[in-house]
Design a binder for these strands. Structure first.
Lengths: 353, 353
DNA sequence: ATGAAAGCGCTAACAT
DNA sequence: ATGTTAGCGCTTTCAT
């Protein structure tokens, strides 16, 4: 790897000081038009480019937007569609400034691994940090990112960090609304298929479910709550085990797996039929999308819409146009199933790893 | 943004020199177990992390794997599935070392934009560089990346850079094979739907097509070659215009759009029927996948398989286990259509932007 | 409008 | 095993 030209090589060639070259390279004032032009052509001729690390060290900004995830990659419900969308959105919003997009690929915390998903912030590689994916209960990294003082946005909220910068969906309200819907239609034993065990968004779901039951003075029955843990359990098995609970007449599927074939398979195996006799509310990330046309209602969880608004606000914060932190929380939308198009099962990162 | 601890703060606290702390942080030899342990606990207690830029400047490696694309983002045929796969693969292969993954989001070359897709290499942000997407004809950036001397891999080959590090598919051979297949079945006027106009992989297709025609002494007829340019033209329109060429009895669709509904729509509009009377070879990225069951044959273009091998070789090069550059070129596979499953139209980045 | 000097935080090279 | 020195390439600060 050959030695590269430095700013001094350009300066010498142009017969000026390094600082003058620096000004030209950074489009700063204080150089005559003539000198500027001359230096520019030398820069191009000599193929000079400033050293990213040196510049970051001195100027204290790196031109990097970091993207990071709290859970292990194998657990993050990152779909190809979402990733592609995230790319498109981030490049739309940040590419004006020619930013780099940096993803942290740290191996997940082993016993002696003191690294964490905030690494890019601590190491001052990121100017801006986007945290995607659910947050573990009692997470301590996000508060530290918050304290670091850089523009950041988490796509999951966290108990105890109300002042944190987040753009998320109110999962508690969604679970409440879904459960209430079935309660109001007369159901009393309602199974709840949750997701994200041990994560904030999982807890929020349970809170909403409990709250709805409390409205009707129905005691909580733990056997009616199961979690879908991708990689560890199969969706079919979990749904079957819920459908087989005695006396159950309704189901809230908040797993957002959007996997209709698994649901149908589970129903068959459990000898149940989705429809008027067994009412279901199914969650989806897609507006006007029906995961299962036999479902009684669908709940749209507008995660992407919240993320979109949040990322735009984050960009304004980063550019100084606006103050942080960002506070966005979208409500869910409960809809019946007419005129909906079928959603196909998304390919998720954990399916590949 | 508060001032962060430096290696000197740790050194002072521990009563040792900065260099000793550096050794501990980098797990290098030359520190007694006792001292090491003491320093480690201080590092954790004080929340110290080395400054990424400073470390890069001094040590000349950044722990970043760069991913970059020659064409404008709006043109790159990056599908959600491929992106997701790329993520999974890169993190499998590079995350052991806790690398960062950096994408370049430079706005595309305007008149005065001298930046280019090698920026992360010139700025010495990347230790390793992966170039995805097709390469423009006469591209000059890849040779410069090659000359820079870092481990890199291009997923497209380039005329005149035979010694370049590539993992690609032989599109010329694929086009030859596809066209020959139809010629051997008696067709003499064969329309060719190409892709990547102005890019190397597009030129290679045409070369293969021409070569097959030459075998039969059929003169090249430009009106039988059309390009599909996503964003600029609709697939349906292009296919219709090809099907309407007089005397055409066969079609090679090398667009890899994998969009069966568009093809069917085009056939209807042109008053043609895919089948024995109008024979077709359609290209796909998926093994054993049928884009169109009515097609006479499918050509599998194993881009992902080549990429997989290439990335693994790149990682070995980067780790020093093996010498570069990488030279991988896969052949295409022509198959008939039995036992194939239908492929669904992938969501591509250019659909979103 | 331009230059000189200092120093960002780290690690290579060379002492001890 | 540990410390000292120098310097990576840049930009800030201050001078001219």
């Amino acid at each position: 790897m050959k030695r590269r030209n430095t700013i001094y090589d350009i300066a010498r060639e142009a017969g000026v000081s390094a600082k003058t070259v620096s000004k030209v390279v950074n489009n700063k004032a204080g150089v005559s038009a003539e000198t500027r032009l001359r230096i520019q052509s030398i820069v191009i001729a000599m193929g000079y480019h400033p050293h990213h690390g040196a510049r970051t060290l001195r100027s204290r900004h790196s031109n990097c937007v970091g993207v990071t995830m709290a859970p292990p990659l194998e657990t993050v419900p990152l779909s190809g569609d979402f990733l592609l969308w995230l790319f498109a959105k981030l490049s739309e919003v940040f590419s004006v400034q020619g930013a780099y997009l940096a993803f942290d690929m740290t191996p997940r915390p082993g016993e002696e691994n003191t690294d964490d998903y905030g690494r890019g912030v601590w190491e001052q590689l990121y100017d801006v940090c986007l945290v995607v994916g659910p947050l573990p209960l009692g997470d301590t990294v996000l508060p530290r990112i918050h304290a670091a003082g850089i523009p950041y946005l988490s796509l999951g909220r966290l108990d105890g960090l109300d002042e944190g910068s987040t753009a998320s969906v109110d999962f508690r309200e969604g679970a409440y609304k879904s459960t209430r819907f079935l309660l109001d239609r007369g159901h009393r034993r309602i199974a709840f298929l949750s997701a994200f065990e041990g994560y904030q968004s999982g807890l929020d779901r349970i809170r909403g479910y409990e709250q709805a039951l409390r409205d009707f003075d129905i005691p909580l029955d733990d056997t009616l709550i199961h979690y879908f843990n991708p990689g560890r359990s199969s969706l079919v098995d979990v749904v079957v085990s819920l459908l087989e609970q005695p006396g159950v007449t309704g189901l809230v599927d908040s797993s957002v797996s959007e996997d209709s074939s698994a649901l149908r398979q589970a129903a068959t195996r459990a000898g149940r039929t989705f429809g008027p006799e067994f009412e279901t509310v199914i969650w989806t990330y897609m507006k006007d999308a029906a995961v299962l046309s036999e479902a009684t209602a669908h709940l749209w969880v507008p995660v992407r819409e919240a993320a979109m608004e949040g990322i735009e606000a984050l960009a304004r914060w980063a550019s100084g146009d606006e103050e942080g932190p960002v506070h966005i929380q979208h409500k869910t939308i409960l809809t019946d199933v007419e005129h909906h198009f079928a959603v196909r099962k998304p390919k998720r990162l954990y399916d590949l790893l």
